[in-house]
Design a protein around this nucleic acid. Structure first.
Length: 303
DNA sequence: GATTTATGGCCAG
DNA sequence: TGGCCCTAAATCT
């Protein structure tokens, strides 16, 4: 589930459910129990995200720092009516549970369950600041400066597919957005950062800003342009656990939606990476300046 | 029932 | 680079 858009949406959902209310904080699974006890019953100030990090702010500048890692989930449930009678017993390994206690008001009771997170720590403002200091610009933050990322990308011989996943270069992009933004800009994942042009980077950044903002709204990752949607192409929608419509992510051995070439996969710094060998040539070439286009006369773009 | 996989990231060597 | 951490669902034998 978690790339930056997931954490931003989660922060928004948590704030909507709990901001200004007192919360019961518990750890049914036990690992967060000692910390939970310290802040149980305190007031929930708000939640915010930075890259893939989530900070739940409680009164007195106490923060619960959450990182979902690869498999974590934080499920928020609202509108249960008055009182805690409708809150179900925890299912599975619930590391952290928040339950609203007062004031109930028109929002009713809310609860949220955290499972599988790689980080769930009670921290202060100093620790929060040090986490933030290690992150590159986040496309979901209006004040983010893409030039900070460009300075590192343009000086690096590392593959762009690696740099895009490096949270110190830019924060919030994960394996899906990486694969998709590279496809949309016809850049091969193994191209070294220093071979990119600044205009290319700016276009990729602007694209990430739009795609990820859309992801926050919908809770899924959709990256195909209108002409490549299932409806426009008359193809079956994706049946997949993440649900979004994408060009290359986990489409190994399937035909490219644009040119029909077979999507390739490989490994880059321990993660699967996906690309179209025709739309994303490995080296800068005429093909990059005059990309293959689906004119309908050459290769069909059938599923 | 056991193994694999997943939108991450840390650490040691 | 490999190992490890977290959990649940999908995919094997």
């Amino acid at each position: 589930m978690p790339e930056g858009h997931t954490l931003r949406k989660l922060a928004d959902d948590l704030s909507a459910a709990f901001a200004g209310r007192r919360v019961r904080v518990s750890s049914p699974q036990g690992r967060f129990a000692a910390d939970a006890e310290q802040v149980d019953g305190s007031r929930f100030v708000g939640a915010d995200s930075a890259g893939k990090h989530l900070f739940v702010e409680l009164e007195d500048q106490r923060f619960i720092h959450v990182h979902l890692g690869l498999i974590g989930r934080f499920d928020v449930h609202t509108g249960l009516g008055e009182g805690t009678a409708g809150v179900p017993d925890p299912v599975g390994a619930v590391r952290l549970r928040l339950v609203s206690v007062a004031p109930d008001g028109p929002r009713g009771t809310s609860y949220a369950d955290l499972r599988g997170a790689i980080v769930c720590d009670l921290i202060g403002p100093e620790r929060r600041a040090s986490v933030l200091a290690r992150l590159g610009p986040d496309p979901l933050r209006a004040d983010a400066d893409p030039d900070l990322a460009w300075r590192r990308i343009s000086r690096s011989q590392r593959p762009i597919g690696d740099l895009l996943m490096d949270q110190a270069v830019l924060a919030g992009v994960g394996n899906v957005y990486r694969a998709e933004v590279l496809f949309r800009h016809r850049v091969h994942p193994l191209r070294s950062g220093e071979t990119l042009r600044v205009g290319q980077w700016r276009a990729m950044w602007a694209d990430l800003v739009g795609l990820m903002a859309e992801g926050v709204r919908t809770g899924r990752i959709d990256t195909v342009r209108p002409e490549h949607t299932p409806e426009a192409m008359g193809r079956a929608p994706r049946e997949d656990d993440h649900g979004g419509e994408v060009y290359v992510y986990r489409r190994t051995s399937l035909p490219c939606l644009v040119c029909g070439s077979i999507i390739k996969t490989g490994e880059l710094v321990g993660r699967n990476v996906f690309w179209c060998p025709r739309c994303q040539p490995k080296f800068r070439s005429r093909a990059v300046q005059s990309p293959p286009r689906n004119t309908g006369t050459s290769r069909g773009a059938r599923p």
